[in-house]
């Protein structure tokens, strides 16, 4: 940047800008939503409009866009013009990364910054791979659920590569916060899309083991329950046929009632699971109302438990109860 934030010299007093006539914002004759501008910001934008309208793609214009972006990183027209200047001047893009990193520190959820970053990385190609993986790690270390950073990282992996350590990275983030749904999503992304791991069929067994372990430690965590189902995507038969899955439900429920375990059990029953005596007695143990014990169907008992345990979604569970497939009513 040209100047310190504290001691900003107005453009009107900078000799190198004396040839430029600033252009004020045209808000129309009677602005619908009149806007009060800060003086510094207004002046910067007035000079920006002047060089933009004159299409002046010079180093000083580039510096001016740096100042304008530092004041408001959301203005996409400034970014747009900056890219045109970078293209025209053939600027060293390494410097551009530094600039972005500086701006991103305080604006990590700004669409324009991420889009610009991607544009620069795309131009650089695989030379940028490690830098981009490192950069997104840094942002994610501050906010592990930053949607932009994750999108950028997924793009880097797919466009430039760098899959080698990604599963370890997911593991590391999950160790830091096992409730981080973004990290679970990334894990699924890696096991299904990494060219190095052989895809879902090759990964299923070890992933199921890992996920079950995690669930047993924190049964109230929504993400691994969904992840577990994802591992059997589109294959209800395999889900029902895997004894580890029904065994997981039983283990969790033998401690106390849990909506995710009951819901998974309900789906297993709907898809044809034949419950054993142990599983039945675990559910019995959770049921204490008399009306439920009169009904012989395990699936109905599970629905009733869910209605009680999760009253906010009682309509959902009531719906599940009335739409139970007929074969569940005999077990």
């Amino acid at each position: 940047m040209d100047s310190d934030e504290d001691e900003r010299i107005p453009f009107s007093q900078r000799p190198e800008w004396s040839d430029i006539k600033p252009v004020p914002q045209d808000d129309g004759p009677n602005p619908v939503v009149p806007i009060a501008y800060h003086e510094d910001f207004r002046e910067t934008m007035d000079y920006f409009r002047a060089v933009y309208l004159a299409d002046e793609r010079t180093p000083r214009s580039l510096r001016l866009t740096s100042e304008a972006i530092a004041m408001n990183a959301g203005n996409y027209t400034v970014w747009h013009f900056r890219r045109l200047i970078l293209e025209t001047l053939n600027t060293d893009l390494h410097e551009e990364f530094d600039f972005i990193e500086n701006i991103a520190k305080s604006n990590s959820k700004n669409y324009q910054i991420w889009h610009h970053r991607r544009w620069v990385a795309e131009k650089m190609g695989t030379e940028a791979t490690n830098m981009e993986l490192k950069f997104t790690r840094k942002i994610l270390s501050l906010d592990a659920k930053n949607y932009h950073a994750w999108s950028h990282r997924q793009w880097v992996l797919q466009a430039l590569g760098g899959w080698e350590d990604e599963l370890d990275y997911c593991l590391q983030l999950l160790e830091e916060d096992i409730y981080n749904n973004s990290a679970w999503n990334q894990r699924y992304f890696v096991i299904t899309r990494s060219p190095l791991l052989g895809g879902l069929p090759a990964m299923r067994e070890s992933e199921v083991r890992y996920t079950i372990e995690v669930i047993l430690l924190n049964p109230d965590n929504e993400s691994p329950w969904r992840y577990l189902r994802g591992l059997y995507k589109g294959d209800a038969e395999a889900l029902v046929g895997d004894p580890q899955v029904s065994c997981l439900c039983m283990k969790v429920l033998s401690v106390r009632g849990n909506t995710f375990a009951l819901n998974l059990l309900l789906d297993l029953l709907c898809h044809g699971l034949q419950p054993n005596g142990e599983l039945k007695s675990v559910v019995e143990g959770l049921t204490n109302s008399e009306s439920d014990s009169i009904d012989p169907s395990l699936a109905i008992k599970v629905c009733s438990l869910l209605e009680t345990l999760d009253p906010m979604r009682s309509n959902y569970w009531a719906w599940r109860k009335v739409t139970l497939p007929s074969h569940t009513k005999a077990i």
Binding site: V32, V33, I35, A36, H38, F41, N72, G74, N75, Y76
Partner: peptide, 17 residues
């Protein structure tokens, strides 16, 4: 809302008015 003076929020949302 938009008539407030010296409001930084209105300044930075100029581009998405």
């Amino acid at each position: 809302i938009e008539k407030k003076k010296d409001d930084f929020v209105s300044l930075v949302i100029e581009h998405l008015r």
